[in-house]
Structures are given as structure tokens and as C-alpha cells.
Design a binder for these strands. Structure first.
Lengths: 117, 117
DNA sequence: ACGCTATATGACTAGTCGGTTATTTAACTC
DNA sequence: GAGTTAAATAACCGACTAGTCATATAGCGT
């Protein structure tokens, strides 16, 4: 088959758990243990493997503190992703301001969805 | 295992071929056949399956024209993705202008791609 | 040194992914 | 209708994913 794809950001964020970890770290650095504690349905090695992917794809940084590992988000790692999505902004409703409004409206109208241009 | 994840945009764009298809469609609508022709290393059913994923995740629209299927990008489908990434922008260097500069610098610094607006 | 705590790694596994070839569906042309 | 073209689906397969449990690594406190 293929998959010589050398794990990248797109792969990293394709998993909901990894996105949740990033979302968690967006609120501040945390130790591996603290992260594990936030995912009661997964085991410690399970989270550890996700953290490895995030490390490998440069989405997080780790610092050693005694036996602990402190994980910090490295949002620059999302630059490639942002860069890719940004290409499509031009096709969006209109300018960035319009986009903001669009997203707001989308968030607001969760149920009401019959407005069709 | 798990994966009750109901294929979403994050999954859709995790595959390089699907991203390439979207990039292609960003240049204008194309028939399925025209898309297939752009990927000589893949077979028609292979591309067809990718197109199905893009359809299911609402990233493209299809219109029927005789036996042909005309695929059109639906960039609103990327809104969720954009929304997610946007959360991290605040942690980026700074404002959008700064981000632009950051990306430009990044593009220039690495392997000078063909991005000049 | 010993045991405890924190985390990573190894070995294994079920399920999914991306690809293939073969077939089906459907609309057009003659 | 018969043949052709366009695209989707079916059936299958190897590779990879995401998870598990068990074990290893390593720093800490006594």
C-alpha cells in the first residue's frame, strides 16, 4: 500500500482524543499525569501514545520536572494547518470580518437551519 | 475498538489525496473523470471512494450532468476546521497581520515555495 | 538500597483505512 | 436494442491505528 506519509499535523489532529488533549493544553501546561486524569476512559499508556504523536508532530513541547513530564502546547505547529485552511478563506462568504460573523451565526443557530441564502 | 466518530472534516483532510482533490477543486469544479485523470497513480474506484468521503463530510457538492458527476468545493464545510484552529490563533505570535508575516517568513525561510499572492 | 511514583515502551489485537479488481448502474449514441 | 461511457459499489486484502496489559526506565524520599 502507501502511507509513507510521515505523520504530520493533519494526521495528528484527525484523532478526537488528540484534539481534546490540545484543547486541554490550550488552557495551560499540564503534566502527563494530569492529562491522563482527564481521560478516565483511557489508560495511561493510551494517553502516552497520543502524547508521543503530538510530540513527534511538534504540536507540544515537553520539559522534565523530576519524574514528571510537563506538556506545553506549541501552537506554531498548527501553522501548516492554518496555512492550508487559509487558502480557502477567499471562497468563504467574504472577508475575515464576514467570516467572523458567519461563524458566530453558525454557532448561534444550532437548531435553526433553514436560512439558505 | 472505538471509532464511533462519525467521519468528520478532521478525518476527511487527514488523507493527502483528499487534500489534493480539494486543492484541485479550489481551482474550479471538475467532473469525477477529470479528477481521476489528475491522479494517474490511483484507480477510478480509488478516487471515487475519496470523493464519497468528501461528499459525506459535506466538503463537496455534486451535480449530475448526464452520466457525469460535477464536483464543486463547498468551503463552508471547512468552517468547523477553521473554527477549531482559530482558537489557537490567540497563542500565535499575535494578530492576524503578525501571523501573515510569520507565515511569510516561514515560507521564505524554508524551501521557498511558489506563494507570492 | 529499597520501595514508590511517574511516564514511556513493548507486545499484542480488533477494527479501520486506503487501495485494488470486478461488477453494477445509468445515461448517452448509433 | 446494443454498445459505449461515466461513475459508484462490492468484495477483498495488507498495513496501520488505537487501544489494551505488562514491563521497563528513572527520579524521589526514607
Amino acid at each position: 500500500m502507501r502511507t509513507i506519509v510521515t505523520k504530520n499535523v493533519f494526521f495528528a489532529i484527525s484523532d478526537p482524543t488528540r484534539r481534546a488533549v490540545l484543547d486541554l493544553l490550550a488552557g495551560g501546561s499540564r503534566t502527563a499525569g494530569a492529562i491522563v486524569a482527564r481521560f478516565p476512559r483511557l489508560t495511561q499508556p493510551g494517553i502516552s501514545k497520543h502524547l508521543r504523536v503530538l510530540r513527534d508532530t511538534k504540536l507540544v513541547d515537553v520539559t522534565v520536572r523530576a519524574q514528571e513530564r510537563v506538556y506545553t502546547i506549541k501552537p506554531q505547529g498548527l501553522a501548516e494547518l492554518y496555512e492550508w485552511v487559509a487558502k480557502y478563506q477567499a471562497m468563504w462568504p467574504d472577508t475575515l470580518e464576514a467570516l467572523e460573523r458567519y461563524l458566530d451565526a453558525r454557532a448561534a443557530g444550532e437548531k435553526a437551519r433553514r436560512k439558505k441564502r
